[in-house]
Write a protein that binds this DNA or RNA. Structure first.
Length: 598
RNA sequence: GGGGGCGUGGCGAAGCUGGUUUAUCGCGCCGGCCUGUCAAGCCGGAGAUCGCGGGUUCAAGCCCCGUCGCUCCCGCCA
């Protein structure tokens, strides 16, 4: 049967349209039968329109209307009518009008829903993902995917305007063993050989620089076979960018401009023209991580010198072991209960901290409770308490929290986790507030205790900062790279670096991380080969589109801004992937499944 | 690989330390009433082997063991 095709959408009719004959297509969002009169809310991507079946409608029309249930897909013809003043719904875009039904055509029916299509749908995530097609009908999901589209569009608009070319790179590539685990694709034509899905287009974009495409970008799908998190999926999308003949600050400026454009175009927000820059070491010391949430201060302090004057043996031992004692002040929270402090301690322990010490500042600045006996009292340096309070900027009514550890990193991360939890608990994390910052001066190398060797902290093509070039081999741990991360509200939004374009320097880096010429040749031969032919100085960055949209949408999981995400075990709940394949397929691919022996 | 949390009609929850239920409530579903609602309202009804398996007990949704699934986190993510 021919269906009545819409002449208008469900979001566009206004009082000015009164009297027009229209056809609407959409889904039954709500159904209110009052006996004599029936109201239908018809929904599509554009909005909701109220349809009325008047008391004097034909018996046939009333019978069809009575059949309608949630989410039936229908075509409705009728006449637009301005609602009487008292019946206007000001919360509804089309609330000033209604459509008086003259004909209703049921296009398809809908079974009882597994959950309601509603803004405040409280179905569990697993169920939402299994029936994602229904979940995506909700206005909240439609709004988020629309935002994602608009962000992607604004990115292309901005970068194309700056002279960038969007160039696609392959998704079947050679596996490179460094970094995350690869997803592999078996080759039918070459028994035993595999393609890998790219963890990022890194090598290809650098080669495009060799080719002279000095401003490249791509909204690139990336694949990493690692365990998922709220902000990590097996496949995700990067705004991949690379430029030639640039220095670090050119890239930072470009991304500042890009973010400014995206926020202005999509959210109508003006960002500051430049973002603050924080050295990696400072970020670790002040916030306990390299992706600080800067919507609130509450920075950590090193109170090692005060700890040494105290009688707290555990603190002194931590310092003697080469560690640190870190403290933070929670303003006006001396009334925190034992239970609340224990909850904070639990978050510190996640990062291997042994405990969370605390003291309260009472009237006249007296230290009270918890660890106070180690800092004030008989036989203790009489100015210690006032000196400490002065250094911390703490006063009466404040709570002081401390973590000590023989490993400085553990003290920082432990107390940093406490700081993050406090930020959430105390309501400092307004999702409508966007605090960007650059984290710069990352270390080039990290020592792998297990394998007793140096590893690249970022990747092996990162340029070490000029001033360390002479001491690369003698003191690798001190070398800072020309690296930069963009952080936003406690999330790493982008990571990038200036790359090495000098083959000699590249060889030295390979050698420090234990790559001999042969390793380099097998693993990255095509890149080193390309770099023999006049590679330009270049660098780049890759903001994560999913995380960016997630934060802009006020969400805390990227699943909320991906149409069809995987669950936390990398399973697609809707299509039930991954799954077994036919024996014939395996045979074609020269693959035999081996049962795991226990 | 490790830790926290969860699993009760289609959905979301309650069920305190085992014994008042015929396992409760809201939404949805089915039937009925209702001429201005917009999360419509009112009346009635159906629907659950309490994730699964085992154990303890006179008695298990509740306790124990195992197992499966989901979720968050640590590790991992150059």
């Amino acid at each position: 049967m021919e269906y009545l095709k819409r002449t208008v959408t469900c979001g566009e009719l206004a009082v000015a349209d009164a009297g027009k004959s229209v056809v609407l297509n959409g889904w039954i969002h709500r159904h209110r039968d009052h006996g004599g009169i029936t109201f239908l809310n018809l929904r599509d991507r554009y909005g909701v329109t109220q349809v009325v079946i008047d008391a004097d409608a034909s018996a046939g029309l009333k019978a069809t209307a009575a059949e309608l249930k949630f989410e039936y897909c229908v075509a409705i013809s009728g006449r637009v009518r301005a609602r009487p003043d008292a019946m206007v719904n000001r919360d509804m875009g089309t609330g000033a009008i209604e459509v008086v039904a003259e004909g209703i055509q049921i296009l398809s029916r809908c079974e009882t829903l597994p959950f309601m299509i509603d803004e405040k749908s409280d179905a569990k995530e697993d169920l939402r993902l299994t029936h994602r097609y229904l979940d995506l009908r909700s206005f909240s999901m439609q709004r988020k995917l629309r935002l994602r589209h608009e962000v992607a569009f604004a990115v292309r608009e901005h970068l194309a305007g700056k002279g960038f070319f969007e160039i696609e790179t392959p998704t079947f590539i050679k596996s490179t063993p460094e970094g995350a685990r690869d997803y592999l694709v078996p080759s039918r034509l070459y028994p035993g050989k595999f393609y890998a899905l790219p963890q990022s287009p890194q090598l290809y974009k650098q080669i495009l620089m060799v080719s002279g495409f000095d401003k490249y970008f791509q909204l690139a799908r990336c694949y990493r076979d690692e365990d998922a998190r709220g902000d990590r999926q097996p496949e995700f999308t990067q705004i991949d960018i690379e430029m030639s003949f640039v220095k670090r600050d050119d890239i930072l400026a470009l991304v500042e401009g890009l973010m400014g454009h995206v926020f202005r175009k999509t959210l109508g927000l003006d960002l500051p023209p430049t973002f603050r820059r924080i050295a990696y070491d400072d970020s670790m010391e002040l916030y306990g991580n390299d992706k600080p949430d800067l919507r609130f201060g509450m920075e950590m302090s090193d109170i090692g010198s005060f700890a040494l004057r105290s009688t707290f043996q555990a603190f002194k031992e931590a310092i003697a072991a080469g560690g640190a004692v870190k403290a933070l002040v929670v303003k006006g929270k001396a009334d925190y209960s034992r239970k609340q402090i224990e909850e904070l301690e639990a978050s510190a322990k996640i990062f291997k901290a042994k405990g969370l010490a605390w003291m309260k500042v009472g009237a006249e600045g007296r230290l009270e409770g918890g660890a106070s006996k180690f800092f004030a009292g008989e036989g203790i340096d009489s100015t210690l308490a006032t000196d400490l309070l002065g250094a911390l900027g703490a006063g009466p009514g404040d709570l002081i929290l401390m973590v000590a550890d023989g490993k400085r990193k553990v003290a920082n991360q432990g107390l940093g986790a406490v700081r993050s939890k406090l930020g959430r608990d105390l309501g400092f994390c307004d999702p409508a507030c966007f605090e960007f910052a650059w984290i710069v001066d990352f270390p080039m190398f990290e020592y792998n205790e297990d394998e007793k060797r140096w590893e690249a902290a970022h990747h092996m093509f990162t340029m070490p900062q000029e001033k360390y070039h002479s001491t690369l081999e003698s003191d690798p741990g001190a070398v800072k790279g020309d690296l930069y991360d963009l952080v936003l509200n406690g999330f790493e939004l982008a990571s990038g670096s200036i790359r090495i374009h000098d083959p000699e320097l590249q060889k030295r880096i390979f050698s420090i991380v234990g790559f001999d010429a042969k390793d380099a040749e097998t693993k990255f031969g095509f890149l080193t080969e390309a770099f023999k032919y006049g590679p330009p100085p270049h660098g780049g960055i890759a903001p994560g589109l999913d995380r960016l949209v997630m934060l802009m949408a006020g969400e805390t999981s990227i699943k909320e801004v991906i149409a069809f995400p995987k669950n936390s075990f990398a399973v697609g709940p809707m299509d039930d992937s991954p799954n077994f394949v036919d024996a014939k397929q395996l045979e074609d691919l020269h693959i035999r499944i081996v049962e795991k022996k226990e």
